[in-house]
Design a protein around this nucleic acid. Structure first.
Lengths: 124, 124
DNA sequence: CCGGATCCAAGAGGATACTG
DNA sequence: CAGTATCCTCTTGGATCCGG
């Protein structure tokens, strides 16, 4: 989202947050940081499928918006740790609500994928 | 998200919801339906920038997942109304949390876009 | 009025290789 | 170990046209 878009178009608070976090990895990244400080390779491991490029991009965005803090230690080999800022922690109710609904839906969903489809119904 | 992905990869409830609703329009669409039943052209008007194709796609997905109901009236000209199902209404806490955080952030953010940038700082 | 079909542009994001 | 740069693929989604 461009800053301009945020200011001109967005009057709705919900849209504001969605524009900020409505991409493939941001929420999952934050979820991970709610579990505590994380080093880069820990985040890479926790988010299967993410590339280093994308991870860094997301982290930089979140940092720019003040949700995440990046600490660099002058060591060899390099060590970098990411953590939630107080502003980032304001997302806690959102994460809790998402977790709550997600749990309900996972439990109650019939799930029509092949894993739950009887063999005689699978087309070949 | 493919159904297979939902069943195989997703153990995390948060990821489950994000996979479902983490695209450009779903949340905003649902936000609109939380305001009451809506006809197609009302949704188009409420979501500036959305195309008929994309709107229909999102609605079909939400319908397929049981979050939205589609009612067709046998009239000329045609009338179609969309509404939240009980399952869709389970998202209420999420919407409330998003609204809450979004409001805070909108209020406290300095907003660095051009609208708030003094003229002498704008590059030409 | 509703929405399907087609075409197409833009961008997100993955794989890989490389640097400090 | 952390991050950048390049290349490239694929998805998302907008514009337009058409049909019921």
């Amino acid at each position: 989202m461009s800053m301009a878009k945020a200011c001109i178009d967005v009057q709705c608070p919900i849209q504001f947050v969605v524009d900020l976090l409505g991409n493939k990895w941001s929420i999952l990244l934050l979820r991970e940081l709610f579990g505590g400080d994380r080093r880069t390779h820990e985040l890479l491991a926790a988010l299967p499928g993410v590339s280093t490029k994308t991870l860094t991009q997301r982290l930089r965005e979140l940092e720019a918006h003040g949700l995440v803090e990046r600490r660099v230690y002058a060591e060899v080999p390099p060590r970098v740790e990411y953590s939630l800022t107080p502003k980032g922690q304001q997302l806690q109710p959102v994460m809790a609500a998402l977790h709550q609904v997600g749990s309900q839906w996972l439990a109650q969903d019939p799930c029509f994928c092949v894993l739950n489809t009887p063999p005689w119904l699978i087309e070949r």
